[in-house]
């Protein structure tokens, strides 16, 4: 705690890398890898969304639309236009970024609940379009995606890959890929937070008017971070699509948007590592609650309320401050 390095968020990045690297020694079967991969991809979306919600203080209740946008664009480009997955993913991300820029310009002028309403509306419209345009999207029953391929090498969840003397299964490779993506996402996020953009955002969160008076072009910064968070979601969505091999409009639903924002708030707004813990919890909770069967919703609702009431700043920030107080 004394040296500046340990204090910096990059120490957290190292710790995260360590934890991710240790995971393969703890898992027992493919199902665990499946959960870990899901956690990494979900956490990637949350890290991006946190830039918008946690740092810039702008609520989005429609972020699942960008996630679904990436996944569906990948699905359509690969299956109907025969574009290979990697370029398709990049085109999808660029497309989602442009859309976010276009819709972000008008709606980011809105404040508070009106912004929530507008983002919610956009999310719902996206879900309806995906549901209705069944020629393109497969409609409510969903659409399949081919396995991911990187530079001509196919990465199927079900394949086996000899590598430097040992054989890795597709599931293991997918986890490594998802973990790498998460690390990259965190690294990028930490850089953004440390940049002039990040400082402007924090000023904005404190008081937008004060930031404006101080000469910060708030509209531009908000728009930029909105686009960045949308691209995060799009990339994670594309990857999830290739990973699972099949997607339905459910991933664009209002419920999914709520899940994403819940991860951010639960883990701790403006805490990059907090939201990762949020993702861990939200992905694992349904697996733990299977024993409750019919009471699953009651328990989940109660947990949500309790955490938010007793740890209003989110899990990690609250716990960290308690540890620090305890250490003193």
């Amino acid at each position: 705690m004394k040296t500046p390095f340990l204090r910096s968020p990059y120490a957290g990045l190292l710790l995260l890398a360590l934890v991710l690297a240790l995971m393969p020694f703890l898992v027992r079967n493919d199902f665990h890898y499946d959960l870990l991969t899901k956690i990494c991809l979900t956490a990637t979306v949350a890290v991006g969304l946190n830039l918008l919600v946690g740092y810039a203080g702008q609520v989005s209740l429609g972020h699942a639309a960008f996630y679904a946008g990436g996944a569906y664009a990948s699905a359509i480009l690969t299956s109907q236009y025969q574009i290979t997955p990697l370029p398709a993913m990049l085109i999808a991300a660029a497309g989602v970024g442009v859309i976010a820029w276009l819709v972000g310009r008008p709606i980011l002028h809105l404040k508070g609940h009106y912004l929530s309403m507008a983002t919610l509306g956009l999310g719902v419209i996206a879900a309806i379009v995906l549901n209705n345009e069944d020629q393109l999207t497969g409609g409510p029953d969903g659409i399949g995606l081919p396995p991911l391929s990187l530079l001509g090498h196919e990465l199927s969840v079900f394949g086996e890959y000899p590598f430097a003397g040992l054989t890795l299964t597709g599931v293991e490779l997918w986890y490594l890929l998802a973990a790498a993506v998460l690390l990259l996402a965190v690294l990028l996020a930490l850089n953004i937070i440390d940049s002039p953009l990040g400082r402007a955002l924090r000023a904005l969160h404190g008081s937008e008017i004060a930031a404006q008076v101080a000469g910060v072009d708030t509209a531009r910064f908000k728009l930029r971070v909105f686009v960045i968070s949308a691209v995060y979601a799009s990339v994670a969505g594309s990857l999830y699509g290739h990973y699972s091999g099949f997607i339905t409009p459910g991933i664009a639903s209002f419920e999914h948007s709520i899940e994403l924002i819940t991860i951010v708030v639960l883990g701790g707004m403006a805490s990059t590592f907090g939201v990762i813990i949020g993702a861990v919890i939200l992905v694992l909770i349904p697996q733990f609650l299977t024993d409750f069967q019919e009471l699953e919703m009651v328990v989940f609702g109660a947990i949500l309320m309790a955490v938010m009431i007793f740890l209003p700043r989110g899990l990690l920030p609250t716990l960290l401050s308690r540890f620090q107080r305890g250490a003193r």
């Binding site: 079967n29 493919d30 199902f31 499946d34 959960l35 899901k38 969903g142 999830y240 699972s244 099949f246 997607i247 339905t248 459910g250 991933i251 349904p286 697996q287 299977t290 069967q293 699953e296």
Partner: peptide, 18 residues
Amino acid sequence: DDAGDASKARTFVTRLLR
């Protein structure tokens, strides 16, 4: 219980199998 959610269904099937 997949609650009608396709991605939940996929996870639970993985759990059943693996």
